Amino acid sequence: MGLLFSRSCRYEKCLRRILANAKPNYRPQASDTSIEADIYLFARLRQLSLKQRVEMFATFL
């Protein structure tokens, strides 16, 4: 699986653009998580296939 942001994408620029589109009152899913971490983790989840997501969450049950 490739990286979410390749070095050629200029991670900082991509992250700033994504954060600019975040809702002003957005709160991270967990109190110890930053908005940047939430954005990164949700983007990674979207990259997974359905099978990979099911396998990942089946371990929590």
Rank of each mutant, 00 (worst) to 15 (best):
G2R: 06
G2C: 04
G2Y: 03
L3A: 13
L4P: 00
L4M: 03
L4I: 01
F5S: 11
S6N: 10
S6M: 05
S6H: 05
R7V: 07
C9F: 04
R10E: 08
R10V: 08
Y11D: 09
Y11H: 09
Y11M: 13
Y11K: 15
E12L: 14
E12P: 00
L15A: 08
R17V: 13
R17D: 13
L19F: 05
A20N: 06
K23T: 08
P24M: 08
N25S: 13
Y26L: 12
R27F: 03
R27I: 06
P28K: 08
Q29L: 11
Q29P: 01
Q29Y: 07
A30F: 12
S31M: 02
S31N: 09
S31E: 11
D32V: 03
T33L: 09
S34Q: 01
S34M: 03
I35K: 04
A37H: 05
I39P: 01
Y40P: 02
Y40R: 07
Y40E: 06
L41T: 03
A43F: 02
R44T: 07
R46E: 14
Q47D: 12
Q47K: 12
L48P: 08
L48C: 14
L50M: 12
K51E: 15
R53P: 06
V54H: 06
V54C: 07
F57D: 01
F57Y: 11
F60N: 12
L61I: 03
